[in-house]
Nucleic acid binder design. Structure first.
Length: 274
DNA sequence: TGAATTGTTATCGT
DNA sequence: AACGATAACAATTC
């Protein structure tokens, strides 16, 4: 389930494939995933050169040469596949398409880029205003702006519990269920703790934990649980997520699963006292 | 068969 | 009015 580290990994892999390429054609096979509409996006994309590929929160952002943007959100099960370029196309011409293809770009090197998405929750958005395309997004947790003071400002005077607050993309952008649980464990904070009850030292600990966890996950190319997102290694280094019933690696107590705001949540009851 | 999974949006209450 | 909690929603896999 792609969160910030997985999206970052996807962008890095996508970069050499798309940057500098001109889009020759675009086809949608599930119109509800395309905004504002399939015809307008097709018209907007054809002939455009992709100048840069980067990430904002969990969005993949492609800068186009007319100053507009193509945003892709993978949601639960979105992923990219592509054919070999030029010479390779002939070799692969008869190869079957990947499963669940929802959109196809044809690039000027004859490569085909497939957006695959079993659950059809992903989004492909063309916009001339980045802010309105992404919706309101908060601070990037790996940016220099994400200081202890900035995090303290977000947490202050909020009685919301830490877990739903950290999942709110308009506050801190890019965290999802796995890395919120991992960050809270590392900071030794309970997910149900009200945000405004943190001591300054705990705010610092949370900031450091979030950055450490995200960097470690990017270094390992993200977390792979199933067919949705292959090739990451972080699943072998998670401390609490998905480890209910197993022993805490720090204290030996048993990891517990609970439900916070309709989300599966994992804690060590000893390391993360309420 | 039902539970689980995502982020966004709507709604209700304080 | 802003905030917080909750539910609904999109669709599929196991």
């Amino acid at each position: 389930m792609p969160e910030l580290p997985e999206v970052e990994t996807v962008v890095r892999r996508l970069m050499p494939i798309v940057v500098g390429r001109t889009i020759r054609d675009f086809e949608s096979r599930w119109r509800r995933q395309i905004a504002p509409s399939v015809p307008s996006v097709r018209t907007a994309l054809i002939g455009r050169r992709i100048e840069r590929a980067h990430r904002r929160a969990k969005y993949i952002v492609l800068d186009l040469d007319d100053g507009s943007w193509l945003l892709i959100h993978l949601r639960m099960s979105g992923r990219f596949e592509w054919t070999d370029s030029a010479a390779g196309v002939a070799r692969n011409a008869d190869a079957p398409e990947p499963a669940h293809v929802r959109a196809v770009w044809r690039l000027d090197d004859d490569r085909r880029l497939y957006f695959c998405d079993a659950r059809k929750f992903g989004r492909i958005i063309h916009t001339r205003d980045l802010e309105s395309g992404t919706g309101r997004l908060g601070i990037e947790p790996l940016s220099r702006a994400f200081t202890t003071r900035a995090l303290a400002g977000i947490l202050a005077k909020r009685r919301a519990r830490l877990k739903p607050l950290l999942l709110d993309q308009s506050l801190v952008a890019g965290l999802g269920n796995i890395y919120v649980d991992e960050s809270l464990f590392r900071a030794r904070l309970h997910p149900l703790m009200p945000a405004d009850r943190l001591h300054p030292a705990q705010v610092t600990a949370l900031r450091v934990a979030i950055r450490h966890v995200l960097r470690a996950a990017i270094r390992r190319n993200g977390t792979s649980f199933d067919w949705v997102y292959p090739a990451g290694q972080m699943q072998n280094h998670l401390q609490v997520y998905g480890r209910a019933g197993e022993k805490c690696r720090r204290c030996g107590d048993t990891i517990v699963a609970l439900r916070v705001g309709q989300r599966g949540t994992h804690v060590c009851p000893t390391c993360q006292a309420r």
